[in-house]
Amino acid sequence: MHLSIGTGVRIAFALVGISLLSASSARADAAGAAACAGKLDKPSRLIYDATAQTAVSSGDLRDLVASKTRSLVMSGQLPRAGAREAAEAAGRCLVLLRQ
């Protein structure tokens, strides 16, 4: 099979276009997550901030949020009362980072 140079160039431009679309989608999701996080109350924001950096690459987001929340409660940075609700609110914003 013979491909002309023009075909290769068109394929390269198509691939660049696809990667640019993917990059802009990722930025939009990060922006959405940041906007969501900006609306969180203080305990939820504490969980979000503690989790956001590893949320993108972590396997199970629910386990990660639970672990970070537990750690914050045990260290006295987050009161136990309301921790579950705060974690759920933070989790809704963290999901946006993974889309």
Rank of each mutant, 00 (worst) to 15 (best):
S71I: 03
G8Q: 00
A81C: 06
V65E: 01
A28F: 03
S75L: 04
V9A: 06
D60S: 04
S19C: 11
C36N: 06
L40S: 04
R80M: 15
K42N: 08
T69V: 08
G8V: 06
L21W: 12
V65H: 01
G38S: 10
A81Y: 11
F13D: 11
R84V: 12
A66W: 06
V16E: 10
R62W: 12
T69E: 01
A86C: 05
R80E: 12
A12L: 09
A35W: 13
A81S: 10
F13E: 13
I47H: 00
I18P: 14
A52M: 08
A30F: 06
G6I: 00
L72H: 05
A35P: 13
A37P: 03
A30K: 09
I47V: 02
K42R: 14
F13R: 14
R70M: 15
G82Y: 02
T54Y: 14
A12G: 07
V9C: 01
A26Q: 10
V65W: 00
S75N: 03
A33K: 03
A52H: 04
S24D: 12
G32K: 15
S67N: 11
A66I: 12
A14E: 06
L20K: 08
A55E: 01
S58A: 13
L21D: 07
S58V: 13
L78H: 04
Q77W: 12
K42F: 05
R84F: 08
G6V: 01
A28N: 06
E85P: 04
T7K: 03
L78V: 07
P43N: 00
A33G: 05
T69W: 00
M74E: 11
Q53W: 09
L15G: 05
K42Y: 02
L15Q: 07
V65C: 03
F13P: 08
A35Q: 13
A14D: 11
R10W: 06
A23C: 10
T51F: 02
A37R: 01
G17F: 06
Q77L: 14
S24E: 08
G82R: 00
A30Q: 12
K39W: 14
R45K: 15
T69R: 04
L20R: 11
D63P: 05
K42P: 00
R84Y: 09
A31N: 13
L15E: 15
